[in-house]
Design a protein around this nucleic acid. Sequence first.
DNA 1: CTTCTCACA
DNA 2: TGTGAGCA
Length: 148
Amino acid sequence: MFYEMPNDEPVYPISTAAKMLNISVHTLRMYEKENLIIPFRKSTNHRLYSISDIERIRCIRNAINESKISINGIKTIYSMMPCWEYIGCSDDERANCPAYNSHHEPCWAAKGKGTVCEKKECRNCDVYNKFSECSNIKSFIKNLTRVK
DNA sequence: CTTCTCACA
DNA sequence: TGTGAGCA
């Protein structure tokens, strides 16, 4: 018996990930440039994707193809994540955070400009990982709309 | 042989 | 989205 491999282990090179998803490596790189995905980087600067990365991209593709949502639409949805709740920001930190104040880019795209999360690895952050599966997004919205 | 970045008819 | 140059 072998232990089960965690689904967040970065193991697939970009060519393999592309085949699994039936998309081009160029498209994969584009999604990264658009801040939809944060693949792992080896010391050689080569990208590695995990199972959850693949799932995340499947969710993105599904939104684009079936729901006719644009890249910008997806980014807008990501930008609505209540990151300050997960991180535990104070009211003051939140008010001055470029990530919180952007309604067009996900918080992990606002790195490097005085965010509280400056030092954090967004790839390992709950705010980023909560949306790795379509079902997570659904339950997230469900909780938002639940009537008390 | 694969991937990387950057550019573009 | 695709293709190609020029590297590592």
